[in-house]
Nucleic acid binder design. Structure first.
Lengths: 240, 240
DNA sequence: CGGGCAGGACTTGTATGGAAGCACTTGTCG
DNA sequence: CGACAAGTGCTTCCATACAAGTCCTGCCCG
């Protein structure tokens, strides 16, 4: 997926740190609610506070980190409201994409998707691998509709949703069920049955969403209570 | 609409500068392609480069500013691809919202929307005022559907689209036609005719979009040619 | 024993000074 | 006259120092 724009974006320290932190937040390697100290992080990375600070500002802009002036910075807790928003947004976009499928589907893309589905069904699939396949699958559907770029926009708003999904899958790896739903969507789409594809997609996405509700009842501490919730400074153990 | 979170976000210099710059970019007060100098801006605002720089980083994260390391920062040109994405996204979300309208509509909201429409039809309406009303109208529809928060998410990705729309309206103030379309959507929505509302919405949004295509042919210098386009340091006085 | 106040240890916010890099200008040479 | 190269002035990047605010702790006094 290497974009040419990436080569344009010359390597800077803050960008590297941003990418690294973002990854750690999205994979829950940095737990929701965890405190992030500019000083500590800078020291552990061997750079000054400046690039660290700036990368935190970028993450805050993404909604993945909350910065409380003179108090501290924290990995934002998963906000149920934001998860719901992202869910609504995603559903709207993916359904619209299915409605927009061209009559002639890109053969190579279809082949890629088919292979993707095969790998999803592989027994003993690692969770992280399933996640990557899942991401690629949905992204591929948007490609089919010619609205690939919209995906990156959705992806930006999808941070909270993704973290929540990950939480859900960590509990009980129901990836097999999801893989079946993926297959259903795909088959309907390639056969030109838009309505069935849309219905299947709706069912799928809502199943994902209800999974999240379940996990929320199970691990409430990872979710935000109020928007102005209290940040707890202790329990740091951030890096490694 | 004042969120409690806003009181939480204590006033910092960088936040103030960010808001201010963002406004200037969205209203085209800062022209697409214009160079922004940290030094110059800091001097003119009477603060150090740090908060200015950090606010630029925030804007870059929004996609409204491009930062080229060791070269300069520029108001990003309106990217047609991003405009199209935002258009697709917006259409998907607003149509989904209309599909999700509850049986019983919030009476107060309905009243607000009705009044909004009345003001849209006022003769000799200032362009900026129409824009504000337009924004409030679409936002109100999402409120009706109970997905208000999704609007803020869309709004974040809507920067390029809004700038393009503004360009379009500056050319020929066709606000009357848009106001009529708004009314059509509204009437259909309150009468419970979801299908007609969706059709009208689709027509409306696509009219807006085609307007943008027209203006692009007319003022190509405000749009990005390629994604890795050349930032020209001179030629600042794009607008006026 | 309990309440209040002061101090210390943290946090992020801002200011400032060099370092590194790119673009353009100018001078020099073929 | 043209081409190449050093130089100049700009940019953003990063490091560092200090300022300002918050939270917690422990002492002191009632």
């Amino acid at each position: 997926m290497g974009r040419m724009a990436d080569s344009n974006r010359r390597a800077t320290s803050r960008r590297a740190i941003y990418e690294r932190l973002r990854q750690k937040v999205l994979t829950l390697d940095l737990a929701p609610g965890a405190a992030i100290s500019e000083n500590e992080l800078a020291a552990s990375l061997g750079v000054s506070r400046t690039p660290v600070r700036e990368s935190l500002i970028m993450l805050a802009q993404d909604g993945l980190v909350q910065i409380f002036p003179k108090i501290g910075s924290f990995v934002s807790r998963v906000d149920p409201a934001q998860v719901a928003d992202a869910q609504f947004l995603r559903e709207a976009v993916e359904l619209a994409a299915l409605e927009d499928l061209p009559a002639e589907l890109d053969a190579q893309l279809v082949e890629e998707l088919r292979e993707n589905l095969t790998r999803q069904r592989a027994p003993g699939l690692e969770l992280e691998d399933f996640f990557a396949l899942d991401e690629a699958f949905h992204q591929g559907l948007l490609r089919l509709s010619g609205h690939f770029n919209a995906w990156t926009t959705v992806a930006a708003a999808k941070g909270h949703l993704d973290r929540a999904r990950r939480l859900g899958l960590y509990e009980h790896a129901s990836s097999a069920a999801f893989a079946a739903q993926h297959a259903e969507i795909f088959e309907a789409a390639v056969s030109g049955d838009t309505d069935r594809a849309r219905t299947a997609m709706r069912t799928h996405l809502r199943a994902v969403f209800s999974d999240i509700e379940r996990i929320r009842a199970h691990s409430p501490h990872l979710f935000a209570a109020d928007s102005g919730s209290v940040p707890v400074r202790r329990s740091v153990a951030v890096w490694e």
